[in-house]
Design a protein around this nucleic acid. Structure first.
Length: 104
DNA sequence: GACTTGACTAGAC
DNA sequence: AGTCTAGCCAAGT
């Protein structure tokens, strides 16, 4: 259900390998909620901060974190430290978008 | 229980 | 190619 959905999101996001990214919609879809991209966003904001939310971006490739908690070094800086090329707050999805191996 | 809000997205302008 | 609009989900008022 919703609780399981959140759990699935946590696991999926925490499994995103370094140097790879995913879109909110893709994450939602993989957790069996194709139209819950916004919910993923809410989870990202209120959920565990130990997850690599900086590897989750918009479907357009634009970075989602315009603010970032106190640290505020920027999701961009974070991504770049993982060998991901960020141009104008954007990443090349066709290049870095990660496809989960299986299940939820 | 209805209304509002938001780290979203696809399609129309 | 950039901006605006409507649709969807869960959580908070």
């Amino acid at each position: 259900m919703d609780q399981q959905f959140k759990k699935a999101v946590y696991r999926l996001v925490s499994d995103i390998p370094i140097g790879r990214v995913m879109t909110y919609g893709q994450v939602a879809a993989y957790c069996q909620r194709p139209y819950a991209a916004r919910v993923v966003g809410q989870i990202a904001h209120f959920g565990p901060l130990d997850l690599p939310w900086h590897r989750v971006v918009y479907s357009t490739g634009k970075l989602a974190g315009g603010f970032v908690p106190n640290g505020r070094l920027g999701q961009r800086q974070l991504l770049e430290s993982e060998n991901i090329v960020v141009t104008e707050d954007r990443v090349d999805l066709s290049k870095y978008q990660w496809k989960p191996i299986k299940y939820i």
